[in-house]
Design a protein around this nucleic acid. Structure first.
Lengths: 260, 260
DNA sequence: CGGTTGTTTGACACGCGTCAAGCTTCGTGG
DNA sequence: CCACGAAGCTTGACGCGTGTCAAACAACCG
């Protein structure tokens, strides 16, 4: 019942990415030896079937800052896990308007929204020089039919993205600008902490404009909120360097209580 | 390899819903004979494996207007398809704020966000007396391991929800109040048309407040937008009765062009 | 039939968008 | 390595769109 790497690649092959500007796929090492292992949503430690999952990542791919892993309308073939660096997901409206609808850190899954109709439904753009694990979706489907734990895990990942997006709708639908910025900082802080980075001191990889787009406010408003938080002693801002000084009061700011 | 109904129910049983206020499950008829068949996202016509899917719906359940199909924190056991009537999905913030994050018509899937951590992540409330098809998730998982087409279909449904929510984030993040209301009317119109209802004349099952919550604006603003559209001859409003008079100009209003 | 819930409309306030100016940082080529 | 231009950030002034508050009316329901 096991899927061997040879069997997988002879069945499905692996297609070189369409973009000429991106690096060729590199040979992938085993997930077992991956440094990100314990933080990876796609192939978590507690997944009993490590042997099978090890055959899933057929290649890595490097993406330079500002370049696209995939774009709207690209044929959907793979899902990805961020290996190093970070990405923004950009969604478009038919009339040309666009919005950043997600930021993705190491270990987080990318490309799931392409399953629905076989075409990528968003752009994935690298915020810094980054790399991803490439997982052919047909192979993932095959694996999840053969291994119950894999199947359950993929369902959970998809559903978790649904929950994440519902939370963002709440942010966009009910929060003031200050609350949105506070929520973002706390969310990012938590995700960094889960990756064993400092939860109180970090670098924003995105511009104020990208952050504003994500939060549904203008870049000037982002800047003003950050300045206000700094003035009130909640954080320290130095361009893209952020230091959280008072987690408790930042949490209060997220819930609309007066931060002063 | 096929799953017979007896086998399914002896393996997993079917649990009576927790709520004492809701009707008991009724014996389900075959999907083959279901009137909603051609509109059902959960078990569409073109799914090759109709025989297997027929064993998936073990029961129907009736929900009275205002009552909950499930609530945040309920143990996740089933996914549902709306059979008759309509629902709103309500998502909560830890601080008590809440927002309507979706409206669901006949044939649309409910409860998928509970997969991620085994607990329902939202409330599903009936907007009118309604009924649903109950599909035990463990059974759906089993089926989708045995039948490739079922698996692919479930993935597509989950991913389609992701795309739907991304679209809503765009609405909440980039649109003015008038554009949001126009978008909602056009979306609803399209979904009704897909169900062979009139796309230009229909009844809003939700209150202005629920609609405003969904669109991220206040109920008074919803009312004002509708009045303005009526004044400009785009629609006719009579309480909850809506008639679309000028689809083209309503589409323009959705994109921010002057509707006058 | 009366009370509750929902809807419409007006007046006003205020948060955020817009526009603009000046500063800092970054990237690139000489 | 420096110079220059572009891109990004901050801050201020001002206006508009939407929220808030209030009142009157309509619809619904027991």
């Amino acid at each position: 019942m096991l899927v061997a790497r040879e069997r997988a690649s002879e069945r499905y092959g692996y297609e070189v990415p369409h973009s000429s500007t991106t690096a060729r796929p590199l040979p992938a090492e085993s997930c077992k030896r991956c440094a990100m292992r314990q933080f990876c949503a796609m192939n978590p430690d507690d997944l009993a079937c490590t042997r099978e999952m090890d055959d899933l990542v057929l290649a890595y791919r490097q993406i330079k800052k500002g370049e696209a892993l995939y774009r709207v309308g690209d044929t959907f073939k793979n899902v990805y896990a961020v290996r190093t660096g970070s990405f923004k997901k950009v969604t478009l409206l038919p009339d040309g308007r666009e919005q950043v609808t997600g930021f993705y850190l190491a270990g987080e899954p990318l490309g799931l929204d392409g399953i629905s109709n076989g075409q990528c439904a968003s752009d994935a753009i690298a915020l810094e020089d980054s790399s991803v694990c490439v997982m052919p979706f047909q192979l993932l489907e095959l694996l999840s039919r053969e291994v119950k734990a894999v199947q359950h895990h993929v369902y959970r990942m998809l559903s978790a993205e649904l929950v994440r997006e519902s939370g963002l709708m709440l942010l966009l639908g009910t929060m003031t600008a200050d609350e949105r910025v506070a929520s973002f900082l706390l969310d990012l802080s938590g995700r960094l902490q889960a990756r064993a980075y400092s939860p109180t001191q970090f670098v924003l990889r995105m511009t104020r404009e990208e952050l504003g787009s994500f939060l549904g406010i203008k870049l000037e408003t982002v800047s003003r909120s950050l300045s206000r938080f700094q003035k009130d002693g909640l954080i320290e801002v130095n361009g893209k360097d952020i230091r959280i000084l008072d987690l408790r009061r930042l949490s209060e700011a997220q819930q609309g209580r007066c931060p002063a």
